[in-house]
Each structure stands twice: as structure tokens, then as C-alpha cells.
Amino acid sequence: MAGQQIDLATLPVQQLSQVKKQLDDEVQHLTNSYQNLRTAQQKFRDCNISIQNGVANSVKDKPLLVPLTSSLYAPGKLADEEHVLVDIGTGFYVEKTTGDAQKFYNGKIEELGKSIKDLENIVNGKANNLRMVEEVLRQRMLTGQQGGQAAAGAS
């Protein structure tokens, strides 16, 4: 069914219901993916802000908390304000200058932005398809009810 056009008016109600369910599932999955991309993009923005605010001369000799896990922090001091460790994925870290790290994160933010735009267009298209199927299904149900009422009135 993917990639082809189908005249919804020719489909039986049961098949329309199946198409609606499939589109519901697809829209839900794509919406979750969209949210995950937005979350990842925000994390990269947060990394950039951390580099701008956290790796500055003003915090050089001040004590700070180093995150070991999402809920465990250890006291520490900033050893070098010119270099940072950057998580490049799958647990690999690379030492970069703060400028290179910001370029890396800006590139990731831009890349995710493009993916988000593309996914947004796909979600909108699927949502429009879903609305069309729902409308045809609603019309069919109304005609079915009207036909049933006319048959009941004739007897």
C-alpha cells in the first residue's frame, strides 16, 4: 500500500478502519521520533551553553560539581579552560578546544534541525492522510446509520 494512491471511497469500512489504525500507529511513532530529535537537539544546545558559561576564566579556580552519572556528582576543579572532552557517540570521548567543541555541537544542532524539518513534513503528510481516512470513515458511518434508519422506518 505504501507509495500508491488509493481511492478511499472504494474501500470497505473494515479496511478503512485498518488503514486508520495503521496511520494512527505511524503518526504516533513519528511523533515520538520527532520528540526524541528535539530532545537531542536541546542537549547539544545545553552542551554549548555549558562550554560558554562553565569553561570560562571566571570559574577557573572555583570548586565545581562534576557529574559522574545523571544523579551523582563529585567535587572538583577545572583543570583546563581551553580544552574539553566531547562525547562523539557510543561512549567515545575526544579532547577538543572549546572553539572546536562549539563548532562540533553547532554542526550537530544544524544536522538535527534538518532532520526535524524533514520529519515534520512527513508527520504532517501522514496526519493529513489520517484526517482524510477519518473523514471518509465518518461519512460511511453516517450513511450506514441513515440507511439503517430508512430500512427500519419502511417496516
Results as ranks from 00 to 15, higher is better:
3 G>K: 04
4 Q>T: 10
5 Q>Y: 07
9 A>M: 08
10 T>I: 07
11 L>C: 03
12 P>S: 08
13 V>L: 13
15 Q>S: 10
15 Q>H: 09
15 Q>K: 14
16 L>S: 02
18 Q>M: 10
18 Q>F: 05
19 V>F: 02
23 L>K: 05
25 D>E: 15
26 E>Q: 15
28 Q>C: 06
29 H>V: 12
30 L>W: 05
32 N>Y: 12
34 Y>I: 03
36 N>K: 13
38 R>L: 15
38 R>Y: 04
39 T>A: 14
42 Q>C: 04
43 K>D: 10
44 F>E: 03
48 N>G: 13
49 I>V: 15
49 I>N: 12
51 I>N: 03
56 A>P: 00
57 N>A: 13
58 S>N: 09
58 S>P: 00
58 S>V: 11
59 V>R: 07
60 K>P: 01
61 D>S: 12
62 K>N: 11
62 K>H: 08
63 P>A: 06
64 L>R: 13
66 V>T: 05
67 P>F: 02
67 P>V: 01
67 P>H: 07
68 L>Q: 12
70 S>Q: 15
71 S>A: 10
73 Y>N: 09
73 Y>A: 01
74 A>E: 07
75 P>S: 08
76 G>T: 01
77 K>P: 01
77 K>N: 10
79 A>T: 09
79 A>P: 00
79 A>W: 00
85 L>N: 12
89 G>R: 03
90 T>V: 10
90 T>S: 13
91 G>W: 07
91 G>P: 03
93 Y>G: 06
95 E>S: 13
97 T>S: 15
97 T>L: 04
102 Q>I: 02
104 F>R: 00
105 Y>E: 01
106 N>L: 06
107 G>V: 00
110 E>A: 11
111 E>K: 06
114 K>Y: 12
115 S>C: 04
118 D>F: 07
118 D>M: 08
121 N>I: 07
122 I>W: 02
122 I>T: 15
122 I>Q: 11
123 V>N: 03
123 V>P: 02
125 G>E: 15
129 N>V: 01
132 M>S: 13
134 E>F: 00
136 V>W: 02
138 R>V: 00
139 Q>A: 11
139 Q>K: 14
140 R>H: 09
144 G>F: 02
146 Q>F: 13
150 A>F: 06
150 A>K: 12
151 A>S: 12
151 A>H: 08
152 A>K: 14
153 G>I: 13
154 A>C: 03
155 S>F: 11
